[in-house]
Amino acid sequence: MTGVADAGLLVRRSVVRTMRQPANLVFSFVFPLLLLAVNAGGLTAATKIPSFPTDSYLTFALAVPFVQGALFASSSAGTNIAQDIESGFMSRLALTPLRRGALLTGQLSGVIALGLCQALVYLAVGEAAGAGFAAGPGGVLVLLALSVLITLAFGSLGALAALRTGSGEAVQGMFPLFFVFLFLSSQALPRNLIETDWFRTIATYNPVSYLLEAIRSLLITGWDAEALALGFGFAAAIAAVGITLSERALRSRMVR
């Protein structure tokens, strides 16, 4: 029980400090929507390509903000942890009877809460702009669950980077790398319509493609078991690896 109570205290702190930095929030809420507006406006011609899955590019592109938002959230998770290490706040926590697991859960819960809020906003804006949602109301819950899992997955990678380097700058420096993964995926076109061979190969091996395609399946096709299994599977796998390695990095940082 104490572990749960500890995590609760840290969640509250994490949420409070996130809410008190509104500038960061505006960025992670607005930036993905801005990119969505630009893409949806400029790339509608893509829907004319034979076998493009939908006639609304907005619906197709709406998947991207969910992943992008998770990237922003992960960057902020990492930066928060790195700041705690740099300021010595982590040492303060290490001197309390706090359990390691609670520490990581606490830090990541704030990010998940942020990810959930972001997902709700993207969804609302998408609907207001006329994007389709083929899977219906049940699909909304699945989409939110997937968003949370993706945020957790990326958040754990951000935490790992922070715990390994202990430097906020190093975490910020990794952020563009995450974006490369996003751009080298099926974010702009379905994989089968990517004509450049190397690009299609990379996009096929890039797990981000499957995250996008799972979200997209809910928006465009309805219930696609394979796409959902791949999306949830990759997100869960990344989260498992990220959390395991973060836990290990935390152990060597907080000598017990």
């Binding site: 109570a5 500890d6 840290l10 409070v16 400090r17 706040f89 303060r92 001197l95």
Partner: peptide, 29 residues
């Protein structure tokens, strides 16, 4: 750790929390 208290170099505080919130967090933990 249960027996000691420590104030280490560079006051390790969270700039976004108030003094009272620090006390609550520390007491809770």
């Amino acid at each position: 750790r249960r027996a000691i208290g420590a104030a280490l170099q560079e006051a390790a505080l969270d700039p976004f929390l108030t003094g009272r919130e620090h006390m609550r967090l520390q007491g809770g933990l």
